[in-house]
Computed example of a mutant assay.
Amino acid sequence: MFSELIKQIRTLYPGREAISLHEPLFAGREKEYTTQAIDSTFVSSVGAFVERFEQDICAFTGADYAVATVTGTAALHAALLAMGVRPEDEVLTQPLSFVATANAINYCGARPIFLDVERDTLGLSPAALEDFLTTHTICRDNTCYNRATQRRIAACVPMHTFGHPVRIEEVVAICRRHHIAVVEDAAEALGSKYRGRHCGTFGDLGIYSFNGNKTITCGGGGMVVGHDKKLTDRVRHLTTTAKIPHPWQYRHDQAGYNYRMPNLNAALGCAQLEMLPAFLADKRELAAEYEKILVAVPALEFIREPAEARSNYWLNALLTSDREQRDRLLAACHKEKIFCRPAWDLLNTLPMYNDCQTDNLTTANWLADRLINLPSSVRQLNRQRTPEAV
């Protein structure tokens, strides 16, 4: 049944026996910059490339300040701490996400509350958020509390799933009315925009990931971005072991974290960021090819970028008719060494989070039964081509 689809996918990656979900591509000055970092002897968390990478991310996204971290998870953890999330607080988020979203909340000693997502964005539903806050919370002294648990709801973490933008302006506006901080999980969304503005720059703070499978990679790495210098300075302090700046003394004013990005990784990131416009153009071309292919396949639906959004198409995705069809397609692709994958298990179903509060999660459950991610690596870059505006 799926033989023609598999054949068509192979035409997108000619000459490959095995087609991975998402591979890195090093087609720029990666070796040159990492060699410079090695020659400088500054290979750890101090070095010129760290500062440059932070500045380059600001220039690309429109953020005013940025702090490079060792992973995207560390970035999210530090951002939540900087926003004042404390033990026994609660944080609103979505169940359709990588486990790091919930783990970072857990690291703070807080508990996630999982609210439903939208079918078109795959991300946190503003309607579900508004309904939960109206029905289940009360505000006292400009602080939001859960009526059932009496815990403070300290923050909201919307995630831009597979690079498709959440309706982030609506989410932020709702949270503002209820006195809830927004930490934007844009780990998968570097290069994605909502209403012309880069994802990651709408919330009080936002984060990106540069893991090996992301659109650009540092091997590992993350970034916290924001517009409030006091907040990003707080992140920088927390991620540098809370060390008080001094030429020689090592004094720390609280328990901090060794979360800063090494200069070697930042060198790689600087080179990758130079290639990002070309990567994004190639990925949009790939998405258009998938859409053409899937129009001809009954019962399969390509997931397009949402209205008023421009997606980076980090991972292309389709919807099957049901879980049985999903599993048959996955099995057929893996047999042919085309390494598609389903969506993550919903976070509320994992043993460490299955007692967390949720709403009905109708759409999240529906999507989890049907989603498949397709191979989405950047393919061949035509250096003569002028990339689309990003």
Rank of each mutant, 00 (worst) to 15 (best):
Q8R: 14
I9P: 10
T11H: 14
T11G: 11
Y13E: 06
P14F: 11
E17N: 04
L25R: 15
F26V: 09
A27E: 12
A27S: 14
G28H: 13
K31P: 03
Y33S: 05
Y33T: 02
T41C: 03
S45V: 15
G47I: 06
A48H: 08
V50Q: 09
E51M: 13
R52H: 07
R52I: 14
I57K: 04
I57C: 03
C58P: 00
F60Y: 15
G62H: 07
G62N: 07
G62L: 07
D64E: 13
D64F: 03
A66H: 05
A68K: 08
V70C: 11
T71R: 12
L76P: 01
L76A: 01
A79N: 04
M83D: 09
R86T: 09
T93Q: 06
P95A: 15
A100S: 13
N103P: 00
A104L: 00
N106W: 14
I113S: 03
L122A: 02
L124I: 02
E130K: 14
T134P: 00
T135Q: 14
H136T: 00
C139E: 05
T149M: 10
R152F: 07
V157C: 03
E170S: 15
V171F: 05
V172D: 08
I174P: 13
C175F: 07
H178G: 05
H178Q: 14
H178L: 04
A187K: 00
E188H: 12
E188V: 11
E188M: 12
E188P: 02
L190F: 00
T201I: 00
G203W: 03
L205C: 08
I207G: 01
T215H: 13
G220P: 01
K229A: 08
K229V: 10
D233T: 12
H237K: 13
L238A: 10
I244E: 11
P245V: 09
W248L: 15
Q249D: 13
Y250T: 01
Y250F: 06
R251V: 14
D253M: 01
D253W: 01
A255F: 06
A255K: 12
Y257A: 04
N258F: 11
M261N: 07
N265W: 14
A267V: 06
A271V: 08
L276C: 13
P277E: 03
D282F: 06
L286R: 04
Y290F: 09
Y290N: 05
Y290M: 07
V295N: 00
P298E: 14
P298W: 04
L300P: 05
E301H: 14
E301F: 13
I303P: 02
A309W: 03
A317S: 12
L319N: 03
T320A: 15
T320I: 10
R323P: 02
Q325D: 05
D327P: 03
D327M: 12
R328T: 15
R328Y: 10
C333Q: 05
E336K: 07
K337Y: 12
K337F: 09
K337E: 13
F339D: 01
F339H: 06
P342W: 07
L346I: 00
L346V: 01
T349V: 10
N354S: 13
C356K: 07
Q357F: 11
D359I: 06
L361G: 01
T363D: 02
I372S: 02
N373H: 08
V378S: 03
V378E: 12
T386I: 13
E388Y: 10
A389H: 10
